[in-house]
Each structure stands twice: as structure tokens, then as C-alpha cells.
Nucleic acid binder design. Sequence first.
RNA 1: GGCGCUGUACCCAAGUGGCUUAAGGGGAAGGUCUGCAAAACCUUUAUUCGUCGGUUCGAAUCCGACCGGCGCCUCCA
Length: 473
Amino acid sequence: MMKIYNTFTKTKEEFRPINPPNVTMYMCGPTVYNYFHIGNARSFVMADIVRRYLEFKGFNVKFTMNITDVDDNIIKKSNEEKKSTTDVAGFYTEAFFEDVRRLKIKTASVYPKATLHITEMIEVIRELEKKGFAYNVNGNVFYDVSKFSNYGKLSGKNTEDLESGARVDVNEEKKNPLDFALWKKAKEGEPSWDSPWGKGRPGWHIECSAMSTKHLGKSIDIHAGGNDLIFPHHENEIAQSEACFEQKFVKYWLHFGFLNMQNEKMSKSLGNFFTAREVLDKYPAEAIRLFFAQTNYGGPLNFSDELLNSAQKGYEKILNLADKIERGIKLDAKSGVIPEFDVKKYYSDFEKVMDDDFNSPQAVAVIFDFIRAANKIIAGNNNIDSIFYHGLKKFLKDTAENVLGIIHLDDLTNALNSDTDNNQIELLIKKRDIAKKEKNFALADQIRAELTNLGIILQDSKTGTTFKKINLK
RNA sequence: GGCGCUGUACCCAAGUGGCUUAAGGGGAAGGUCUGCAAAACCUUUAUUCGUCGGUUCGAAUCCGACCGGCGCCUCCA
């Protein structure tokens, strides 16, 4: 039985999708006015792990991530850079896809763009207006929060408290300070579209209601995003969708904790962030993903080089085993010994912990338990049959690679097999072996040092010398 | 002010009533192997879970108070 923590009910619930084996999942994506930062990356990666685990469980997941390509920040940026909003959005959309690819996040089923769904948004707003949930003031259309009785249920707020909060914007046109914009009247020089209320552009929240419905249906299984979207964004989405379509919008709400810098939320407005691409230039994606996966998705997580380095060491530990597995397979020893090894147990442990609200830290622990056990067997046996290595590889592929994305075995295979300089390395190793036999250790060490400088680490063992490459990306 | 999260070893972190006198990663120390390394393997590194009380046969886990850190209530993953 799979359990999932639902922000709406604040409890872990059994996961039962509306239409099994299909699962509909919507994740709030980027507003494309800048490169996304490593804190955003945490949410994207953890959503990716959730999606991949659902697929591991045999669900057919339709995963949608929106791209907000019209909003205040994009307009601001386009003015600053003296470019069109289309150019700004286009540029950062491409950058987004590039970073997602580098983070080895699986491509979504659809990436709907706000500007391509204006018609759908207008339809939802018209319906809301017809039903009395929206009002038009001089071309600005607002949602009337007082008409929606469940307002505040997701975020645990009540309208009285919110109204008494001093920080809500005072806007003369709104009936109530909590009301939010569905449609914004066009200002000079801003991108705009024709609508029943005149030229304008959509408010922020309406795109998710419209696009989620269009691509996934009126009721969806999972809606995910960062903690900071609970209020007001997701609250407003519920108000819009449920008022418009008169059915439950989302069955399970999933929210991700923040990535902190020295215990402070990393955010664009505070300026205390690193872009995902900066971090990807320093660490392999697998190490970054391992760093994220080692903590529960819902809580806070501090970011620092020290912590990333420690994750990278962990990743290298996985690589070391993977490397041995590749070599074992390459040797292809038939009719060698087949050691006792209960791979099934690791599968069931992995599944058990991931079933419990995607407990990736424990899943990682299972992987490392597996690694220790496998290493022990490899160290203790000569002439192991290649069938054993194939079993190990399959497990790592199914769990560490396909679900967590903390290793990519094919990259390793390719590096091992297709690199043209491998022959030269082998030649140097032979030279060094001869030097060692002649007790010419000075020469042997010199050869090793040269290779080390090239990122090639030699490993002597009873069966001969092997090498591995570091900084494999 | 309202709502919510959080405090576990040197660092990160899981565990939320008995299976745990606390997983996993990093770090550190000793050992096996080795010409020396590296990797791997073995051993050690929290009788203790912010503090003080309480409930219970039994608590890191439940309750209360207190202390500390953070977030949301305004754009933000």
C-alpha cells in the first residue's frame, strides 16, 4: 500500500488514483524571466523522483509542467534588457530545458505555455463571471473570495485572519483585499490579448486552473509545488477550479520544502542563491540528486559546498561498485561461482520505504546497504560468474538509476568501452607492471602520477591493475 | 498578531509508542590487502534523541511548559 502526505488533509493517506492505472500529475513550473536556482531544482528533482517512482509501481503517469511565459517579472526584465517579452521568455524557456536535461530530469508529458492557452483561461473566467464568482471593474476582473466558502482550507487560514493581516495590498478596485486578479487590464507597452473585458493579460493563478483542466481533466490526482505556493497560489487555484467546474480539483496536494542558505530560504528576492547551472558546473547531476534524495522532500534542507562534497563522495561510492560491475560483465566469466545474494530483499526494502510517502532517504540507505553487501561478496570471491554482475546491475538500474537518478550506468559503460585512449592507458599500465616486477618503483610511481594528473586512478589487485576515471559527468 | 514547520553523533540525516539500548552518507581512528598508494573489506566513533516535568509496564516517538532556528500570511519551488 502506497501512502502519500496530503497537504490538504495534513495526513498520510493511502494513494488511490482516480483512474488507475493512470495517474495525472501537475507540477508548477518556472516563470521564465531568469535561470532557475538550485532551490527550484530541489522541487523539480523531487517531483521527478515522485513521478519516476509512480512509474516504477506500474502507473501510467501523465506529468504536466506549466511554463509561465507572461507575468510582471518577465515584463520588468524585458524593459530592463530592452527586449521583447517573447524574446525574454523564449530565451529562459530554452535555458530551463537545458538545465532540466542536465539535471537528468525526465521530460514531462506536456509543457503547456500560458501564452498558448489564453482562450482557455478566458473561458474559465467567463464561466466564473457567469456564476457570480468574478466581477469586472474597468477591464480588471477579480475573483470574489467571499463567494467561495472553502477559501483558506488548504493553507489553514481563515478569511478573517487574512483580512486583519496588515500586509494585504490595498487596491481601491477590489471589493475585498483578498480578492485576486483573474484578468489584468492592459497597460501601455505590455503584451495583451483581446477579451470580453477589453485588452489585457491573465492573472497568475488562472493559467494553472485552465491548463491543468485542459491537459489532465477537471479532477486530477496530484498537484505539486514548493511550500511557498500553498498560499496564495494553490489556494486560489482551488477557488477558481472548484467554483468553475463544481468538482474536486485535486486529490493529493504535494509540497516541497525549501533549500536554505545558512538557515535562510534561498530566494530570488533575497539574492542568496546559486543558479542550477552554476552548481551543475561544479558537481555531477547524480551528486546533486543524491544530496536532495538524502533528505525527506517536505522539510528544509541547507545548501553548502561541504554538503555537496559529501554527497559527491557518496556518489563516487556508487560509481566504484558500478565500475566493478561493468568490468565483471565485460569479462563475461561463464560457469564461474554464483554467490548467494538475495537481491529480492533489497527490492522489497526499497519498495517498502518508498511506498511510505516517497521516503527517499531510506531508499538511499537501502542502496548503500546493497552496495556494502555486494562489495563484500566481490572482495571475498574470485572468478564470479557474470550472471551475478548482471543481477547487481539490474537492481541498480531499476532503483538507483530509474527511480532516484543517482547513477547512470550506460554513461559508465560507454566511457569504459568506447574511449579511444583506453588502449594507451592499458599500455602505460603494462609498462608500469614491468617496472614493478623489476622493482623500479620510481618509474612505476611516475607513471601512476602522470595518469592521476589526467584523472585516471589506478587500482592494483591480485588479479591485475584496473583504472577508473574521476569527474565522470 | 494568525497559521505552520523544525531542534537526533564531529557534519548531514532517517526513525514518530516495544522489531531500534537510534538507519544511511560524509568525516575521524585502528586493522586486512599492497613495494607504496587507491579501492574494497573488518572494527571503533549517540545508553542517547533542545531543556524541564507528566502519561505509560514501556517514549527520541504521546501530553504540557519553556528555550532556540525557520517559513507562510506580498512576487517566490
